[in-house]
């Protein structure tokens, strides 16, 4: 399983998403898009939009803190 969270340090929903994944024992790579323009571009290309957080859950792109979508992705 490969999970990446694109986030910014100040975004409350990013914090929520990461807390939720941790609580559920999901290991993930945390990418701060405010620190890297390249990462920000990658996130926009993957998700087609510019809002954080974006979670790449094994190729499935989840925009925002979407508990239902995250749970569904975990079950797969």
């Amino acid at each position: 399983m490969s999970v990446t969270v694109y986030s910014t340090p100040t975004c409350p929903w990013c914090k929520k998403t990461k807390e939720f994944l941790k609580e559920n024992g999901v290991k993930f790579k945390d990418i701060d898009v405010s620190a890297s323009e390249k990462a920000a571009k990658e996130m926009v290309e993957k998700s087609g939009q510019q809002g954080v957080p974006v979670t790449d859950f094994d190729g499935e792109i989840i925009v925002g803190f979407d508990e239902k979508a995250l749970k569904k992705a975990m079950k797969k």
């Binding site: 409350p12 510019q50 809002g51 954080v52």
Partner: peptide, 18 residues
């Protein structure tokens, strides 16, 4: 919305570098 139109500067501001 989320493609340039945003409501939370603290969340998404960093995506508009330069």
């Amino acid at each position: 919305e989320n493609k340039g139109v945003a409501y939370c500067a603290i969340c998404d501001g960093a995506l508009f570098k330069n």
